[in-house]
Design a protein around this nucleic acid. Structure first.
Length: 411
DNA sequence: GTAGGGTTAG
């Protein structure tokens, strides 16, 4: 066997084949390079993609085309590396390679995900100027962008204008709107969307059901959520790991930790339970109810399974420790996060700060704030007001106000 | 060989 695939990714294998082609005198062409560059970009391995890009251009003398650039732009957008996106667009212009429909669509979607819907609309205008006609995918990105911002009236008006553009909304369009209504807690609107999809004869998929189930949980309608879970299966849609996570989180958030744990045990050794997200949800759920024995057992179990805790897992643990006043353990774990390769983020700091304030460990506050400042982190609204209250009350020294002021978010 | 929707926090 030429390749031992047991420890190689598909990308490694593809690159191996590329080398083999070279050795055997069968010159890899732009199709071969573009295929692998795209795959690397999709897997967020952008540095490797650029390595291959440079090899193609400089060592092999193959000129990149619009597809090469579009793949790289996609990869960079996914990593929010906007400066490099601009650089590549400029490079394309210099090489007189025009962005095509897909390039524009990627930019529209990236701006929408960033919350920059105005920029996204500007890209659509440029598209149209250049003779490209935006399709349902383009508008789905825009609708989703407005939904993510909670601007449901605007999202709805774009949705309503689709017909006059000769476009037919698909399941993705409805999913985005449904999700927007759910996140804005406009559950009745969401349910209306749900029924409209069925009425139109569209086939709701797993994502669509997941969105609706989550929406029902978010307004406390657990019974309806579980009923829909049954219905989706009756309709032939197989629940996936997202469905499972949504249900566990929904139960935990609605004071049904026991039900969540029963489901978790029922699922047992299935691959659904080989997922760090599941453990983070349950650890957080148990921690918030002060069930530290369960928290510890779950944390131990995930290690036994060889799962890697992430920032959210650690933060959930820390919240659990703080909740029952185990500040020393919270602090220890917080310190270990960096050593274990996942440094605390904004949220981890807020959680520990809340723990310190609630348990009157005022002496530990300043050092955390200084660290946050060094890392250019900022305070969320609730932590900020809590800190100010404690200064007013005299528990924290007034001299901290300057530091606190530096941690107020800029925007 | 290049585009779109869904999961975990305060």
């Amino acid at each position: 066997m030429v390749f031992d695939s047991s420890c190689l990714s598909n990308n490694d294998i593809a690159i191996g084949l590329l080398r083999l082609m070279d050795e055997r005198g069968c010159k890899p062409d732009i199709y071969a390079y573009d295929t692998i560059i795209d795959s690397l970009c999709k897997d967020k391995m952008i540095e490797d993609a650029f390595k291959l890009f440079n090899e193609m251009v400089f060592a092999k003398g193959i000129q990149p085309d619009v597809i090469t650039y579009t793949s790289l732009i996609y990869g960079l957008c996914n990593l929010c590396r906007w400066d490099e996106v601009s650089k590549l667009l400029k490079e394309m212009e210099d090489l007189r390679i025009s962005p095509n429909f897909q390039t524009f669509s990627i930019l529209v979607d990236a701006f929408c995900k960033e919350g920059s819907v105005d920029e996204a609309e500007a890209v659509i205008d440029i598209m149209v100027e250049r003779g490209e006609v935006p399709n349902i995918v383009t508008y789905n990105s825009l609708i989703d962008g407005y939904c993510l911002r909670g601007e449901m009236t605007k999202a709805r008006s774009i949705f309503d204008s689709l017909t006059s553009k000769g476009l037919v909304p698909d399941v993705v369009t409805y999913s985005s709107l449904l999700n927007g209504y759910c996140k804005s807690l406009k559950i009745e609107e969401a349910i209306r969307m749900f029924h409209e999809v069925t009425r139109k004869g569209l086939n709701p998929d797993v994502i669509f059901y997941n969105t609706m189930i989550q929406g029902l949980f978010s307004v406390g309608r657990c019974g309806d959520a579980c009923q829909l879970f049954d219905e989706m299966q009756a309709q032939g849609q197989t629940p996936n790991e997202y469905t499972y996570g949504i249900i566990l989180d929904g139960l935990c958030s609605n004071h049904q930790l026991e039900e969540a744990l029963s489901l978790f045990h029922l699922v047992g050794d299935s691959k659904l339970n080989y997922n760090i997200v599941v453990y983070s949800i349950l650890i957080d759920g148990a921690g918030k109810r002060g069930k530290l024995d369960i928290v510890r057992a779950l944390f131990h179990e995930l290690h036994v399974k060889g799962l890697q805790p992430d920032v959210r897992t650690y933060t959930a643990m820390i919240r659990g420790f703080c909740r029952v006043g185990l500040l020393r353990e919270a602090k220890n774990l917080f310190l270990k996060m960096g050593e274990r390769g996942c440094p605390p983020d904004n949220v981890s700091y807020s959680v520990l700060l809340h723990g310190y304030l609630k348990n009157q460990h005022f002496n530990d506050v300043e050092i955390l704030l200084q660290q946050m400042d060094r890392r250019s982190y900022s305070l969320d609204a609730s932590t900020l007001s809590l800190l100010k209250d404690r200064v007013t009350a005299g528990s924290l020294d007034r001299s901290l106000l300057k530091l606190i002021g530096m941690l107020v978010p800029k925007s």
